[in-house]
């Protein structure tokens, strides 16, 4: 096993990967998620998102110019969009919902 500090075990994203994204100026969790792929695996970020947000908090504090550079960026730490399903759900169970008791 080669030495690695793993941030996202599902997608094998390392601390070096996250630091590289931060170094490029990707300081929002949405950017880092997409650039590194963390949080897109089988646990959908339950193990890596908070750790990454904490790393980003430190990086944002070290970059006061970000406010001028990216005026619409969120100033406080935020999670990436928690996409449903929050836990994996089989297609067969979801398919049962089609047409059944539908309103709207």
């Amino acid at each position: 096993m080669s030495e690695k500090c793993i941030v996202c075990p599902c997608e094998d994203v390392t601390l070096a990967d996250v630091e590289q994204a931060i170094g490029l100026g990707y300081l929002d969790i949405d950017e880092v998620k997409r650039f590194t792929g963390l949080g897109t695996g089988s646990c959908q970020g339950k193990l890596c998102m908070v750790t990454t947000c904490q790393l980003l908090q430190t990086a944002q504090a070290a970059d006061p110019q970000r406010v001028q550079r990216q005026p619409e960026a969120q100033r406080v730490p935020h999670p990436f969009t928690p996409r449903p399903p929050v836990v994996p759900v089989p297609l067969g169970v979801l398919a049962a919902g089609k047409g059944a008791d539908r309103e709207r």
């Binding site: 695996g41 959908q44 089989p90 297609l91 067969g92 979801l94 398919a95 919902g97 089609k98």
Partner: peptide, 25 residues
């Protein structure tokens, strides 16, 4: 509703995916 419609149509085309889980939408 999307998950329901999508799953039903997908399984009608490829029934062997029935127990495969959706991770996100």
């Amino acid at each position: 509703r999307f998950l329901e419609d999508m799953s039903a149509e997908l399984l009608s085309v490829m029934p062997c995916l029935s127990s495969v889980r959706v991770l996100r939408q």
